[in-house]
């Protein structure tokens, strides 16, 4: 196919690590904000959302990468969506067999993984141009980066907003939870705060390098 040009990466550790730090989908690219803000109100929800998204991300990367030479470029986006939607449906069924409670807590955000721009973005910008092995690494790296980000938010918000982690109370009865942190507005506060610290750290690291 004529549009096969583009970067090809060897399966290296770099491909994996990039998604976690340098190209972190949430903290650097600010992608996938909808689930990050909406379901990070507890550590369990955040972790399950992260795992479900990573599951879909890795599998769709594998499929997109393995059939990248068979699909005409005009219909590639339609094909990506179809592949992603299939794995999201699979993830939905699996999640229901694991825990109905988590499934109910994640609610509409599980089907919405279909339109998660992180997954579509990796399919378009990486998996459709690279062999299977690097695509798996890329998917895993980006997925782990997403899990770290959403889990960080979920854990912070649960500790501040409910005074517990994974449902286990951390403080005594005297602790008055900071309820706003598990409300939607708290998601924006925590995200903004984390981004501020990250930007500040990067700024300092740059300064030291000079």
């Amino acid at each position: 196919m004529q549009d096969m040009a583009g970067q090809t990466a060897a399966p290296t550790l770099e491909t994996f690590l990039e998604g976690i730090w340098k190209e972190n989908p949430v903290f650097i690219h600010l992608l996938g904000m909808c689930p990050v803000l909406a379901v990070s109100n507890s550590a369990v929800n955040a972790l399950s959302m992260g795992l479900a998204t990573t599951f879909v991300l890795v599998l769709s990367n594998i499929v997109v990468s393995s059939i990248r030479n068979l699909v005409p470029s005009q219909v590639r986006i339609a094909m990506f969506i179809m592949v992603i939607a299939t794995f999201v449906t699979v993830a939905e069924y699996l999640l229901q067999t694991i825990s109905l409670e988590i499934y109910a807590a994640l609610g509409a955000y599980v089907p919405l993984i279909v339109v998660n721009c992180i997954i579509l973005g990796r399919a378009e910008s990486f998996a459709s141009k690279n062999p299977i092995l690097p695509s798996i690494l890329d998917g895993l790296g980006t997925g782990v980066g997403f899990i770290i980000a959403i889990f960080m938010m979920g854990a912070l918000r649960e500790i501040l907003g409910s005074g517990s982690l994974f449902g286990v109370a951390l403080f005594g009865d005297q602790f008055e939870p900071w309820v706003v942190m598990i409300l939607p507005s708290g998601g924006f506060f925590v995200l903004g705060f984390i981004l501020l610290i990250l930007a500040w750290t990067q700024e300092r690291m740059k300064g030291e390098a000079k």
Binding site: V71, P72, V75, M79, V83, T86, T89, V90, Y93
Partner: peptide, 18 residues
């Protein structure tokens, strides 16, 4: 062909998992 192929495989996969 490409789209129908992907759709067919997807359909089978979903019904098997279901």
């Amino acid at each position: 062909r490409a789209l129908v192929g992907v759709a067919a495989v997807s359909g089978i996969l979903i019904s098997v998992v279901f």
